[in-house]
């Protein structure tokens, strides 16, 4: 993916830049709001990572508002040291697609960037079913089949699986699951998400020969279709 990174702190910038490049992305960078805005308007990106606080008069929110004002719908991920719920709401209201607070784990950022980039691509007609490998989810009847065999899932388990399937091949973090599947924005002390994923595995993976939900150490989970 072609990514624009606007971040003023050189350490954070080079850290993120290196990580994104290693993940195979093509990254442009800017260390101030003016250059960032210039690049964001002039070039075509799959995703823009914006630091909220930038030197030089133009901050992340200004860039975002300018972009959205020009009907530019490139997904934007805001990066900020402001963790306040209100700041987060401000960022999303201004047209941001996701919000990551500093300090962050790179795996979290990468997972969110890839999820956003993917979303930018398949905004086609609404689907009625999702298929990954031998797993099929019928979105209307809420029925799940793997290898032709019906699997009974609780509503929440269905949503969890649906989220994993929609991001098949991508790492999704625990925080992403808590936010997107449960719509909670707090940091649970216990392993609530792990337990739910493990329950899902019991139903989706256990009865079958191969597992499709995998744990990625220090990051989260990934649903990878079986290679036949």
């Amino acid at each position: 993916m072609r990514i624009l990174l606007v971040e003023d702190d050189p350490t954070v910038r080079s850290f993120v830049l290196k990580g994104l490049k290693e993940a195979g992305h093509n990254v442009d960078q800017a260390d101030n709001g003016k250059d960032g805005l210039y690049l964001a308007i002039g070039e075509k990106y799959d995703i823009i990572i914006l630091d909220r606080m930038l030197p030089g008069g133009i901050d992340g929110l200004n860039i975002l508002e300018t972009l959205r004002g020009q009907k530019n719908n490139t997904p934007v991920l805001l990066l900020s040291a402001l963790s306040d719920v209100d700041d987060r709401v401000d960022g999303l209201r201004a047209g941001g697609d996701d919000y990551v607070t500093k300090p962050f784990a790179f795996s979290e950022l990468l997972a969110r960037v890839e999820a956003l980039g993917r979303r930018g691509h398949n905004e086609s007609a609404p689907e009625t079913s999702l298929t990954v490998g031998d797993l099929t989810l019928d979105l209307l009847s809420r029925e799940v089949r793997r290898d032709g065999q019906k699997i009974d899932l609780q509503p929440r388990e269905f949503r969890l699986l649906e989220f994993l399937v929609r991001h098949a091949g991508q790492v999704v973090t625990r925080t992403m699951l808590l936010e997107k599947v449960w719509d909670y924005h707090f940091d649970p002390q216990t392993n609530v998400i792990d337990v739910h994923v493990s329950r899902l595995r019991q139903k989706v993976d256990k009865p079958f020969e191969t597992a499709i939900i995998h744990t990625v150490r220090n990051a989260g989970y990934i649903l990878r279709p079986t290679q036949d």
Binding site: R156, W182, Y184, T190, N191, V192, V195, H196, S198, R199
Partner: peptide, 13 residues
């Protein structure tokens, strides 16, 4: 009920 649903699994675990 949502919160209970979220934590019920952890409790059981």
């Amino acid at each position: 009920s949502n919160m209970a649903e979220l934590y019920e699994a952890s409790a059981e675990d």
